[in-house]
Nucleic acid binder design. Structure first.
Lengths: 196, 196
DNA sequence: CCTACCGATCGGTAGG
DNA sequence: CCTACCGATCGGTAGG
């Protein structure tokens, strides 16, 4: 019954979730088997169920952990006194930061959320919709204040969130560039475009 | 032995591949079963194998058909007398056009190519790498000619290809905007950025 | 945390 | 194009 104390080492459950994220990222949710996961954490497949209740529970853990981080940050930005342009830049920088520091989790959350079952699926989609709407509001505000171009605000949101995901591909073929330059170049490309 | 003539109606094999693309898009490659596909084209699962040799052959069909279209277009652009800026814009417009006209195929190709088996997998990756390299060369040329900002050319490629994929999300929640406005706004966002 | 095992389902084949 | 079926493998459970 005793809860494991917070410590530098991961609990068995956290180890399982972390390894699962790695396997999901590499092979996809469906193609990852509980037997393969068990092998990675060095136990039998049946033993996994002493730590987690189902394969999908692991996926939920990953998806909602990432979603919570993004929402928490967005709420903080929303309340700040920054201009729309500063807010959007802060959001973009946070996305890049998340992609760089929690790569597997973000990757899996982005691609495999479709395998969530109800009611988790609807909850996840609702959170994402709210997130996109809040971003769209900031952009609409920025358009009003003539800080942004007159584009469809919802499209701009999708375009930014999509563009930020290029870090996924980047990670794949590590080319000679520091994370600092990656971040600055990407922020420039998304906010000011490629054209000089 | 007789090849089916080109006609307005699809051959049985083409019907199967088209339906498969729709199912792959909706449920993913692994989660799509041959039995479900058979149901959609109104035959028994075993009968599918009179038209195709394996589930993966269908995926190959989709992925390489899309890849060929993109490569063919890129080679045409490469040979043209356009400036780097014009070339990149033409490429972006073609990507948007493909996303709008062959949505399922492009979507599946983008996400499910990982399930290709060797040697198809390596061939696909090689084609993509060549595509990205050719685009990077055009961008590097544009940077030299001061048409583009001084950013990492390979990152710019990934950022553009990633940004263009927002049409995937767009399709999901059809909001009130014409494909013309979608195209123009997206081209603006990718080439000139959000900031006014 | 393990052994033993189950019901379901999968992609694909044999043979017509 | 179908009936009948197979070997493999899956997520998960029982019982210790």
């Amino acid at each position: 019954m005793a809860r494991p104390k917070a410590s530098a080492t991961l609990s068995r459950k956290e180890q399982i979730v972390q390894q699962a994220a790695l396997l999901f990222k590499t092979n996809g949710y469906n193609a990852t088997t509980m037997r393969h996961l068990a092998e990675q954490v060095e136990m039998e497949a049946a033993s996994l169920y002493n730590h987690i209740s189902s394969k999908e529970e692991i996926l939920q853990h990953i998806c909602f952990s990432v979603a919570t981080d993004f929402i928490t940050h967005l709420l903080k930005v929303e309340k700040s006194a920054q201009s729309p342009a500063e807010k959007i830049e802060a959001i973009i920088r946070f996305h890049i930061h998340m992609m760089l520091t929690r790569f597997e989790d973000v990757y899996v959350s982005n691609r495999d959320w479709k395998h969530l079952k109800e009611p988790a699926l609807s909850q996840f989609l609702q959170q994402r919709r709210q997130y996109e709407n809040k971003m769209a509001n900031i952009i609409a505000d920025g358009i009003n204040k003539q800080q942004f171009r007159e584009v469809h605000a919802n499209l701009a949101v999708l375009s930014l969130l999509s563009g930020v995901r290029c870090v996924e591909f980047w990670h794949r073929n590590k080319r000679g560039i520091s994370t600092q330059q990656l971040t600055e170049d990407l922020v420039t490309l998304l906010l000011k475009g490629l054209k000089a």
